[in-house]
Amino acid sequence: MEPPHPRAPRDLHALLALYDRQVRREARPDGPGCRVEHVGGVVRATGPAHAWNGVLWSGLDGPDADVDAAVAAQIDHYRAAGLPFEWKLYGHDTPADLGDRLRAAGFVPGGPETLMAAEAAALPRGVPLPEGVELRAVTDEAGVRQVVEVHARAFGTDSAAIGRQLLDRLAADPDGIAAVVALAHGEPVSAARLELHPGTDFAGLWGGGTVEGWRGRGLYRALVSHRARIAADRGHRYVQVDAAPTSRPILRRLGFLELTTTTPYAYKV
């Protein structure tokens, strides 16, 4: 087993418990028109069609818990709203067979990712950029279009919903979101966003993507460093990320440690 990284938090079990409490069980709405509800041992987020809709947390491990009924109740809730949704299942969630129950109810699992976290203030600062590249804060519609363009090129997916979410957040809660785009001689080639959870120790790193041809030049590291500095300056102790397999080695070298896995279970109503 590798020794802990000198910049990494030490007590991983305590850190995961803190994350579960602050970010999942005590989640707050993350955009205009969104609400968070605590219903029957489930914490769920509901908002506009372009927002993230789904289950953030479930406490369904008691002796009297009717797991299948709780799952069916969430399907009924989102079906009534006409919203596809996601059950965000973490590797340590209980009961242990919850994933099997979700699949039996019609959910389709996506690719697992790894929840990783690090001390924001301890991460490297001033990561050098390739020649001709500059970072620019996203503050308006033109910047959001650049983020959407990068995501479409980097991930090959329609990122219009992310653009709408970002515009909503920038208009309604600019202190709760920060996005950045990397420009190479004026062309957007990498982008990412930072979601801040007011009143918590955590800020989330999301959407880090780089277009083909600019990968492997340190842009991902630079965007992590840039956002971690913002998080630390705004009083957040930790930054966390749902890391894809391609990102994990980079994050480990920066000082992130693995806390658990997370798998999205999608349901189409």
Rank of each mutant, 00 (worst) to 15 (best):
L257S: 15
R229P: 03
I250R: 07
A8H: 00
G62M: 04
G99L: 05
F85V: 09
L251D: 08
V211H: 07
A231F: 11
D168C: 04
A105W: 03
Q22C: 03
E131D: 15
L135H: 04
N53V: 11
A73Y: 10
D140T: 14
A179S: 15
P174K: 14
G213F: 10
P63R: 11
R169Q: 14
A184W: 10
G208M: 11
A161G: 09
G31I: 11
G207E: 00
Y19T: 10
E131I: 10
A105I: 08
V133S: 04
R10C: 05
E113L: 10
M1G: 15
F202D: 02
L183N: 08
V23C: 07
A137K: 03
A69S: 14
D76Y: 02
Y238S: 09
T263Q: 12
V224Y: 09
M1S: 09
F256V: 14
W214N: 02
R103P: 00
A192Q: 04
Q146F: 00
H77D: 06
L194D: 03
G204V: 09
E212M: 12
E2C: 04
P198W: 12
P63K: 08
R217V: 03
E2V: 15
P63C: 06
G91L: 04
F85Q: 06
W206N: 11
D66N: 12
A72Q: 13
L60R: 08
W57Y: 15
I75M: 07
T157G: 00
V239C: 08
A120H: 05
V148C: 06
V71M: 05
P48W: 05
A232Q: 09
W206D: 09
E141I: 10
V239S: 10
E37D: 13
E141V: 07
H38T: 09
L251I: 11
R101D: 04
F155G: 04
P3D: 15
M116F: 08
W52R: 15
G132Y: 12
P124M: 07
P112F: 06
P109Y: 11
V39E: 12
A118H: 04
A118R: 07
G218Y: 04
L83C: 07
H77M: 02
A161Q: 11
G204S: 12
P198T: 14
D242V: 01
E2M: 09
A51I: 13
G47D: 03
G110Y: 07
E113D: 11
A243D: 05
V189L: 11
L223A: 02
P3M: 13
A232I: 02
E134A: 14
R227N: 01
A152L: 06
E119Q: 12
A80Y: 04
R7S: 13
D158T: 13
W52P: 02
R217F: 05
I177S: 00
P84H: 14
L205W: 05
L205T: 07
F256P: 00
R10K: 13
G91A: 00
L15N: 09
D30N: 10
G176N: 02
D233Q: 15
G82F: 07
G31Q: 07
D93T: 10
R21P: 01
D175G: 13
A192T: 14
R164C: 03
D97N: 11
A118Y: 06
D11A: 08
A70F: 02
D20S: 11
G216W: 10
G33W: 02
Y265E: 04
E141K: 12
L12P: 00
